[in-house]
Simulated assay, not measured.
Amino acid sequence: MYRMLFALVLRRFDAETVHHLTVRAFAVLSTLPLVKRWLYKALAPQDPALRVSAFGVHFPGPLGLAAGFDKDAACAEGVAAVGFGHVEVGTITAHGQPGNPRPRLFREVSQRAVINRMGFNNYGAAAAARRLRRTRGLPVVVGVNIGKTKVVPESEAAADYVTSAKILAPLADYLVVNVSSPNTPGLRNLQAVELLRPLLKSVKDVADATPRRTPLLVKIAPDLADEDVDAVADLAIELGLDGIIATNTTIRHGGQAGGLSGRPLKARSLEVLRRLRARVGDRLTLVSVGGVEDVDDVWERLLAGATLVQGYTGWVYGGPLWASRIHRQLSRRLRRHGHKSVTEVIGKTA
């Protein structure tokens, strides 16, 4: 039914308009206690074999929603109710900003892909914090992804990230430093180790000082050269980070400006994951995102060393029950292969 709805109706509307309407719908769902609890019981991962622990946080299932959908922490509970094991909100900047001019979100249906040049449009860290302070009616794991405010110069980037971290780290189950979006000028320059080291160290000092020490991860681009992937991995070990999220969108698509996500990113995302696993082993939690479409992709990422897997574009094309369906299929596959827990699969073939 969803494929028919998408083909006949949704794809005919502006992608960003559909995105905003969907966020509002899930935000409304988040305010309906009985409905969201019923959906959570029916759709969220309930099989104990799917449970995963990473950096001291317990996840009901390995598949979560990547940053980019819930930019302002408006609907995490609604999203969790339809089957995601965690929700990463953001990217959130210290100061609110409108993002890039519209149109800025485009479907590439033939490739099952999306191009976006949103530019971190959000209402800012203080507004997101007000939402994150609300009591959660569901046991949803919420990660917070932070980025650089566009008008802040590169020389002041670390202080800008620290501002966001001070506001948001105490409210997050984990914190992510995003230096890999292609849609904020100069942002990807911060992936260079000489710039990244002081930035991550400053944010880590903030995360470590929260009452329960907020785990800190860094999100990298698929377009990094292999030696730069190694350098970031080494830096993460050196600084004592909790993990790496690989990967963000790619600019190597030959199309219009913006980052490409979805099926075309699959091979490179998996390649980066395998390289990271070979470099860091199990010393860091690896979160794989990029081109995840079905249970086969999730299974492959787990085997390659990912503890957690994320998707977003796959959800766009797979429909609202996409995550719930994959978790059910993963549960059956585990038993078919004789595994009692998803943790038995992680890193079995790199």
Rank of each mutant, 00 (worst) to 15 (best):
G119S: 09
A126W: 04
S164M: 06
L65E: 02
Q97Y: 12
H95R: 13
G319W: 02
R301I: 04
V280T: 11
Q46V: 01
A25D: 05
G186K: 12
H58Y: 08
K148V: 08
A192N: 13
F26M: 11
A306T: 05
G64L: 12
G99Y: 04
V141P: 00
P185F: 02
N121T: 06
D72I: 03
P211W: 15
P98L: 10
Q111G: 04
Y161D: 02
V345Y: 06
G281L: 10
A128W: 00
L241C: 05
R12S: 14
L199V: 06
L21V: 03
R212P: 00
V23F: 09
V342G: 01
R112Y: 03
Y123G: 05
V295A: 15
F120M: 08
L63A: 11
A128C: 10
L171D: 01
P198G: 13
A246L: 10
M118F: 15
W315L: 15
A113L: 11
F26G: 00
P215V: 06
R37K: 14
L171T: 01
H86M: 14
R283K: 13
T249H: 03
H58L: 13
V177M: 06
L171A: 07
Y40G: 02
I244E: 00
V203S: 05
K41L: 12
F84Y: 11
S202E: 13
D47R: 11
A27L: 04
I251K: 03
T247P: 02
V203T: 04
E344R: 12
G319E: 03
G83I: 01
L34I: 04
G78W: 00
L239S: 11
R283Q: 13
Q111D: 12
L10D: 05
K36I: 04
G240D: 07
V23W: 03
C75F: 01
K36Y: 03
F84C: 05
R328I: 02
L302C: 10
L276R: 00
L34D: 12
G64N: 09
S331R: 08
D205Y: 06
H95I: 15
K340Q: 15
T31Q: 12
A246P: 00
